[in-house]
């Protein structure tokens, strides 16, 4: 009798435990599903937040008016100036930034930490602050500009000032990427080249640069894109003169107060360029990873 009761009690216990396990399992499954739904919703929300304004730009732009605006001197001037200054900026950043990035990737020198922080500073510095800082340095009454002005050179409010502002804000994007690309190259490859009779310069151009090339191009594209979108520093240091210092972002802002179609036309051009830049960087970085895994 006692044994039977004990058996019944044992069976009940087992059933209870099964039920507990079932409830626990169900709860954890619901939790996992809830988490998935939550994350999915968050992702959709984030996508919509970025995609909606971009899509609206295309959907709210009347095509015929946009095509007409393409012939507007304000658009053509801004497009020409933006492409020209951004190209010159990128060339300057690449020529001056590549040796700096290489030195920082391979050598140590006193004050390197400070130099590193200075190189990165424009990334976190508000563009308007960069603009006023440039004005204080190179403006007519600036620290260096004062002497340059005495010699007959004037930088502020010229096309050169646009390039100065763009170089200031975009150089960290290139230098950081280039430095990482150089650091990723196995130093024994450079050493091997040296033992095979290659000078430092020959090694740099025949071994280091080809191996870092995809990364360098990605960095240059990012710097180009940043230059193309530069607004704050340019308007403060170079002003807003059509054909001389009015780049596309400045023209968008100016046109907004008069002809919205011109503004939309310039915005669409910038969006298309941005898409191309992202696509190019993605393709190139994928090639970098592919090469690295080889």
């Amino acid at each position: 009798m006692a044994t039977d009761q004990a058996k019944i009690g044992y069976d009940r216990g087992l059933k209870c435990r099964d039920q507990e396990v079932d409830t626990g399992d169900l709860f954890s499954r619901a939790k996992a599903a809830g988490l998935k739904v939550g994350l999915g919703a968050l992702l959709i929300l984030a996508m919509a937040f970025i995609a909606l304004p971009v899509a609206s730009l295309f959907l709210k732009s009347p095509l015929d008016a946009i095509i007409m605006s393409l012939h507007d001197p304000m658009v053509t001037d801004a497009l020409r100036l933006s492409l020209m200054t951004s190209a010159l900026t990128t060339a300057t950043v690449v020529v001056m930034g590549t040796p700096i990035a290489y030195v920082h990737a391979r050598f140590h020198y006193p004050g390197k930490e400070l130099a590193d922080s200075l190189i990165d500073l424009p990334v976190i510095m508000p563009p308007a602050v960069a603009g006023i800082a440039l004005l204080m340095a190179f403006g007519r009454m600036g620290l260096l500009g004062h002497y340059l002005n005495a010699l007959g050179f004037s930088i502020a409010f010229t096309t050169l000032a646009v390039i100065f502002a763009q170089v200031f804000v975009s150089s960290p994007f290139y230098i950081r990427q280039a430095r990482t690309s150089f650091e990723d190259i196995d130093i024994s490859l450079e050493n091997a080249a040296r033992t095979l009779g290659a000078s430092r310069t020959y090694t740099f151009f025949h071994v280091t640069i080809p191996l870092a090339l995809n990364g360098l191009i990605s960095g240059a594209i990012m710097a180009f894109a940043r230059s193309l979108g530069e607004f704050g520093a340019t308007v403060m240091f170079a002003g807003n003169l059509q054909g001389r210092t009015q780049t596309m972002p400045l023209a968008i802002y100016t046109a907004m107060q008069g002809d919205l179609d011109v503004s939309l036309c310039l915005a669409l051009i910038l969006v298309i360029i941005s898409f191309l830049v992202i696509a190019l960087v993605k393709v190139l970085t994928r090639r970098v990873y592919k090469n690295a895994s080889n």
Partner: peptide
Amino acid sequence: VPPEARNIGYVFQNYALFPH
């Protein structure tokens, strides 16, 4: 004398072949 002028053949541990 810099390494490029020493005329020394060096086989590195990872072979250091130029991957490109």
